[in-house]
Design a binder for these strands. Sequence first.
DNA 1: TTCCATAGTTCCTATATTCGGAACCATGGA
DNA 2: TCCATGGTTCCGAATATAGGAACTATGGAA
Lengths: 116, 116
Amino acid sequence: MRPFFHPAIEDVEPQAILHALSDPNRAAILAKILTTGVVEACSNVAALGDRVIPKSSLSNHFKVLREAGLIRSERHGIEMRNHARFAEVNERFPGLIGAIINAYAGVDSERAVSTE
Amino acid sequence: MRPFFHPAIEDVEPQAILHALSDPNRAAILAKILTTGVVEACSNVAALGDRVIPKSSLSNHFKVLREAGLIRSERHGIEMRNHARFAEVNERFPGLIGAIINAYAGVDSERAVSTE
DNA sequence: TTCCATAGTTCCTATATTCGGAACCATGGA
DNA sequence: TCCATGGTTCCGAATATAGGAACTATGGAA
């Protein structure tokens, strides 16, 4: 099991961030990390909406977020703790993460209204 | 040759926008349209940076931008005119496009400094 | 008209990505 | 030592992307 790779902040590229967040599941994961501060395990996240995401996919989603520079993961005993690298990334790309998370939040609330 | 399809603004989704702009070529095309107001043809854009983009790829890039709701294209005689749907999209997703374009611009200027 | 150049699209195939099941590894108890 | 838990890795199937070649549409020139 390889150690986690985290890019230095100056190596973080916009295309990687956009690619990572162009998947709604990954965007939801990041949103959850941002609102709760830390997400302690993949399984905590598994119940994102109603759809079940397989473990292997989830593991890959975390990897993509990590390698895009959006989160930092550390193994802590048996589980993994993930936190957002918000301050760094937001300094490098001002407003980017916020605008993206807001965009998804807006659409989600539309959907909630239309199906209630 | 099918007519162009443009999604209604309320059907525009964040993931499509992020996916479209996760390609630096497409981001550069959009940036060019935003700064010049209109881009009048694919070939005007062909000289983006130093890399030559084949016509077929270029055509596809415009299609992706169009279907993501980012640009509006109209055939005008022999050529195509493209303009950004900035106002609409920015109202729906405030700050999103600007933050993305700025992020790329920042990285580009870094690169310019490091190679000068 | 007919012919040609230009601008762009479509088609097609080689290549690259993504998804997810199954097998695996590492850690912390019982 | 053994098991449960939490993740990762591997791998094949499905999907998406890139770009060359052939095609279409338009406007002008002869």
